[in-house]
Each structure stands twice: as structure tokens, then as C-alpha cells.
């Protein structure tokens, strides 16, 4: 089982070699390439499009070539990446949404292909408030996925939908793709339609913790549709993307996130993919002098988990 970590806050465009070498040195052989940092969600919501994805594919490939070479030189494989999000904003102008659908999404798939990356995480649309139900919301997401599917097949990329949260005041609540049974049915239906694995799932442990999902049940319902992971921890109230085992809520000081449930779930479905940590904030939370230690700590947790999952799988 391989270990992976998000490139954000580790790999810098100016000198990507150092970041990928650091990842490798810490114990990661895979990376979750943070494509979303080239068009930030806050900018999308505010209709501030920076033009990055207006570049031609040749220009984008030229831009990303140093990162690709640096990863290869370090022995790090780009296992998954994150498409910029949101990919549809109900209140935004037609210009913005057209740009997201027609430029950002297809070029993200092509960038994934350029990196030899087979999984890209895609956010479902957040439209429940307007359309009234999760089913109606999904219909819009599916229309988008349908539009991208032929290109995904061409690029050999699986689009992975992720369990998300929404907000009611300060309360983070269930968002798109929080029902594993529905997700499984939709993934199967879509893959059958295209005769290829165009759709898969990204289980986000932090988001699941925020909305009290039962990790084990969720993973069991997903089964082999689970392609990638976003592993990180929080206090159950805020999306903090911190190191697992960081939070406790009682005097006994035991972890308040159900990591045992995660391991049981992954074991039950014989997960043999990559354990990926989506923990960019860890790198800014610790002082520079401790960054490598923090990264190594993440890798150590990953190795412990891999052993726990594989040990039981073997017998």
C-alpha cells in the first residue's frame, strides 16, 4: 500500500524539486497534486477568474513540465489530483459557469493525463437549497459528469466524487455525496453507460467526521468504487485538515474521530489503493523547523495504518 500527501504547501512552482524530494524523504511515494490552487474557490465564488486555465494545453503542459520532471526525479507518482471547485456557481454569471465547464474542467482532465494521473477529485454541485432535493441536485452534477465522461475515457482518468459538507450559519451540515448507497448506484450506472471507470469515489474522512457519517458503514457500502482518499482530522465542528489522532472531546482523551472504524471499513473492502493525506494546513500550522517532522509523522501514521489494514487482510 502506497502513501501520498497533498502537494499544496510542500511543492512550490519556482523550485518543485525540493518539495517532491522532501515528500519522498518523509516516506511518501505518491502525491495528490493540488491543481485547485491555480484557481482558488474563493476567487471562483467572487467571479475573479485569473485566466490560468485560459492558457492553451501546450502552454499548460509547458507550465507543469518542471513539476512533472521533479516528481519523476524524486520517485514520486502523481496518484490523484483535485479539480478546481466549485465547478458550477448558481449565483454567478453565465460567463463564469461557461468558463468552468468549457475551460477549467476539460483542461483539468487533460492536465491529469499529462501527469499520468488516473484519478481526479470533482466536487458535486451544491444546489439543494434551490432545487429542493438531493436527487434534483445530483441530476445537475450528473449532467456535468456526462459532459466530461467521453474526455475522461479518452484521458484514462476516473472522476471521483467526494462526500462534501454545506453550511447553515456556522453549522457544517451534509452536502453532496453523503449517501454511500446512492453514490454506489450512481457510479455503477454511469460506468456501465460508458463501459469504463469514468466515475469513482473519494472518501474524505474530515468531511465525514463533520456530519457524523459512520465511516465503516459508508466504506462498506462503497466497496470497490472507492478509488482515492482524503485523510485528515478535525474537531467535528470545523474543516481543519489536521493530523489524525489530534482531537479528543472527553477527559479520557481518546481520539474523537473514528479511526478504528476507518481501518475496519478499509479492511472489509480489501482496500489496496493509496493512503492519501489531505493535510496542507498541517504544513502552515507548524513552524518551518518542524515541517519535515510533521510530514514524517503523517507518513508514520500512514505506515501504521497500512500495516493494520494489510495485516488483517492477510490473515
Amino acid at each position: 500500500m502506497e502513501l501520498s500527501v497533498q502537494t499544496k504547501n510542500i511543492v512550490e512552482d519556482a523550485h518543485p524539486e525540493a518539495g517532491f524530494q522532501a515528500m519522498r524523504a518523509a516516506g511518501f511515494s505518491c502525491a495528490d497534486f493540488s491543481l485547485n490552487q491555480y484557481l482558488l474557490n474563493l476567487d471562483i465564488y467572487q467571479e475573479r477568474l485569473n485566466g490560468f486555465f485560459s492558457q492553451s494545453m501546450e502552454e499548460l503542459e509547458a507550465f507543469f513540465r518542471p513539476q512533472k520532471r521533479a516528481a519523476e526525479a524524486a520517485g514520486v507518482r502523481i496518484h490523484q489530483m483535485h479539480m478546481p471547485y466549485p465547478i458550477y456557481v448558481p449565483q454567478a454569471s453565465e460567463r463564469v459557469n461557461r468558463y468552468l465547464w468549457e475551460e477549467v474542467a476539460p483542461k483539468s482532465l487533460r492536465v491529469a493525463k499529462f501527469f499520468g494521473c488516473h484519478n481526479i477529485v470533482v466536487h458535486g454541485f451544491k444546489l439543494r437549497e434551490y432545487l429542493g432535493s438531493e436527487e434534483a441536485e445530483w441530476a445537475q452534477t450528473e449532467a456535468f459528469l456526462d459532459a466530461m465522461a467521453p474526455l475522461a475515457v479518452e484521458c484514462g482518468v476516473t472522476m471521483c466524487i467526494e462526500n462534501l459538507y454545506g453550511g447553515l450559519g456556522g453549522h457544517l451540515v451534509e452536502g453532496p455525496c453523503c449517501d454511500a448507497h446512492k453514490a454506489a448506484e450512481r457510479i455503477d450506472r454511469m460506468n456501465e453507460k460508458y463501459g469504463a471507470e469514468v466515475l469513482g469515489f473519494c472518501f474524505d474522512s474530515g468531511h465525514a467526521n463533520l456530519v457524523g457519517l459512520d465511516f465503516e458503514m459508508f466504506l462498506e457500502a462503497l466497496g470497490p468504487r472507492l478509488k482515492v482518499l482524503h485523510l485528515h482530522d478535525n474537531d467535528g465542528l470545523h474543516d481543519l485538515h489536521q493530523i489524525p489522532y489530534t482531537f479528543a472531546k472527553t477527559r479520557e482523551n481518546r481520539a474523537s474521530t473514528d479511526w478504528d472504524g476507518l481501518l475496519r471499513g478499509l479492511r472489509a473492502i480489501h482496500f489496496a489503493g493509496t493512503l492519501n493525506f489531505e493535510t496542507a494546513p498541517v504544513l502552515t500550522a507548524f513552524p518551518d523547523a518542524l515541517k519535515m517532522d510533521a510530514l514524517q509523522m503523517l507518513a508514520k501514521i500512514g505506515r501504521y495504518w497500512a500495516a493494520e489494514i494489510e495485516k488483517d487482510a492477510m490473515g
Binding site: G132, E134, V173, E174, V211, L213, L237
Partner: peptide, 29 residues
């Protein structure tokens, strides 16, 4: 509410089996 559940979905699933609703405000805690 403690688990931030989508209540429309819950109600839609249980349909006519639903006989009572405890109406209250709560947060993620």
C-alpha cells in the same frame, strides 16, 4: 442536527411511517 443530516432526505425516505417530529434547534456538538 448533531450529525448535520439532510432532513428532507430522511423524511422522503420514511414517508408515511413518520408519525411525530421533535422540533428543536441544535448544532454540530
Amino acid at each position: 442536527g448533531a450529525c448535520g443530516q439532510d432532513l428532507y432526505d430522511f423524511i422522503h425516505e420514511v414517508g408515511p411511517r413518520l408519525q411525530a417530529v421533535l422540533l428543536t434547534d441544535t448544532d454540530g456538538d
